[in-house]
Structure formats: C-alpha cells, structure tokens
Write a protein that binds this DNA or RNA. Structure first.
Lengths: 158, 158
DNA sequence: TTGCATACTGTATAATTATGCACGATATGC
DNA sequence: GCATATCGTGCATAATTATACAGTATGCAA
C-alpha cells in the first residue's frame, strides 16, 4: 500500500544514507515492497524529498534528505528567512558589520542583503562563513546592527 | 569569475523559477557568464542548492530552491527538528493528541514520532496535514502534550 | 452488470544531472 | 626558466531521475 510504503521510505532515509532511487527501491524490496524506480520517483516527489549534496568534493556521496514543506512556504521575505536561518552572530565596528554563518552560508546571506537594497548599505562581501557589510556612515551602525539582530531573534532557538 | 557567477545564480533563483541547469546556464549567459551545464552542476553542488518538487501533480514544474546548510547540520534530533518546523498546532483529548501541520507534512511528523519510540505512545496515524497520536493511558495526556508544546515552542516564530 | 472515473503502477524512454578526463591558466619552489 | 601543483572549465558520456503511455484494480452510479 502506498501510504505504508511512503512511510517506510521516510524511515529508511532517516536511518541511513541513500544515494539513489534505485537503492531505495532495493531497500524497500528487502522490506517486502516490490516497486520500481519509477514508483520511488513518484513517492519522492509526493513526500517532498530532495537529494542534497553531502559534501562538495568531487566524488562526494549524496543522500536523500527531505525539505520540510514549511521551508518553501512559511517565511515571508527571503532576507528574513535567510538571516533567521543562517546568521549565527552579528558584530559591528566603525562602519562595518560582520555576520557569521554556518560554513558555506555566507554567500547566500550576502546575496539576500544585496537584493534587499537597504540604503545604509554600500556593499557586502561574502566569504565562506563570514559576511562583511559595509555601511555608508558610522552613524548607521547601531540601527543596522539592531535590525539584523531583530531579524535573527525570531528564530534564535535552533 | 566563479564567485560572482555563483552569486548571480543565487540571485537568479531567488527571482524566478528555474527548471533546469541548462536554463540556468542560459540565464547566466544573458548576464555575460558563458558556462556549460557541467559548470552549473558544480556550482549548484557547491552552493548546496537542491531542486525541489513544486507541486505533486504530473507534469508539475520544478524550480531550484536552496536548502540552507543549517538545515542539515543544526538540529540535534530528527524529532525535534520535525516538530519544530512542521507542527502548527497541538490539542489533546482523552488518550488522543492531534497535531496539525502544513499540507503534506503529517506523514513526516508521524514517522519521526514513531522513530522516537516514546513509551507512552502506542501508535500514530498520519494523514495529509493531521497526525493522530494514540496514548497508552489517559493519564499520559498532559505530559505528552506538554512535551510536544515544548519541542514546538523553541521555533514558534516562523 | 455495465460503464465510467480514479488511483496506482510498470515499461520504456526522455530529460536532466553528475563526473572522468584532458586542457589551459595561474601559482609555487627550486 | 622550468618543473610541479592547483584550480576552473569544457567535452563527452555515464548515472540518475522524471514521465508518457498503457494496463490493472477499485469504487460508484445507473
């Protein structure tokens, strides 16, 4: 039955890395669900699962992870979402603000800030886990730092 | 240059639906970045982008969305993450608890609860946006409801 | 029962993505 | 300078995923 099979899929991917739908089909077969890759593909789509790159080196393995539906629908603005989910730390000095993110997150944060086009900001530079935000004036520092903190605060727990 | 091109990719996918890496390559070309699908594939991997199914109907379009790196690394337990992100509402009665989720999220929540194997819980049923949790005893109701609320509370803002 | 609609699936194949290999550019050490 | 190493890339193709189509099963109304 479709529902139980899909639940089995969720259980499987929560347990171990799965690298392809063929592999998933094999694992399901071992549990008594005999289905083809085609069906697995449909299940994966219905469950909203996505294949995420595990590490960026060549030859890196992949596994399935699910993207919770809420991620794509809940947050109102991209900037808000990105800051809330990716910014770990905020600190400012003179006319500069440094934002820390998990590894690999900096470019997304920088991109989102650019897109927001805040007038106080004259530019951003995103590295791997650090974003440098340059302000037009030293006077803007406390206001903008506070704004970042506020965006961040709404999801501080995770 | 690789970095600016990758930032352009982030900007593109934030702006409009992109259905394939070929399409992304075309859009980049329009901005002066001439690259092949192969390079886009590598960029997508490095940025941690994933292709998410947009709707489940046949012939449904897809687009790129990024999975924030934090999603795969931050939360400690699957149950915690799933409850925090997916459970919208909790209500209990007698020996039953009903959890509401965004559409499509119920099965994941049910699966995660099953995997956690809480002793008070004798079973779960996941529909589309509703999970029914059955408890062994009426006495367990307030305790378990509170536990769900606590898990949820840590991310209530989103 | 018959006819029709819906749901689920497999087969075959199209579409898409990932990657081995080679090459050119740039940097590093001798 | 020259050898060597690293990085980014394209090309060709392998690997993986999505889907058009057809078949089976089920439910329901006439």
């Amino acid at each position: 039955m479709k529902t139980t099979r899909q639940r089995a899929i969720l259980s499987l991917i929560a347990t171990r890395p799965v690298h392809s739908q063929e592999e998933l089909a094999s694992l399901l077969e071992a549990q008594g669900y005999e289905v083809t890759q085609a069906t697995v593909s449909r299940d994966v789509k219905e469950l909203g699962l996505v294949k995420v790159p595990l590490k960026s080196g060549t030859g890196a393995a992949q596994q399935f992870k699910y993207v919770e539906p809420s991620i794509t629908t809940n947050f109102s603005s991209r900037l808000h979402r990105v800051i809330a989910e990716l910014v770990v730390h905020v600190v400012g000095a003179v006319n500069q603000i440094v934002l820390r993110t998990p590894p690999g997150g900096a470019m997304m944060v920088a991109s989102a800030i650019d897109a927001a086009e805040w007038p106080e900001i004259i530019g951003t530079i995103g590295g791997d886990d650090t974003v440098l935000v340059l302000l037009a004036s030293t006077d803007d520092l406390p206001v903008v730092v506070q704004r970042f903190e506020d965006l961040r605060a709404e999801a501080q727990s995770a």
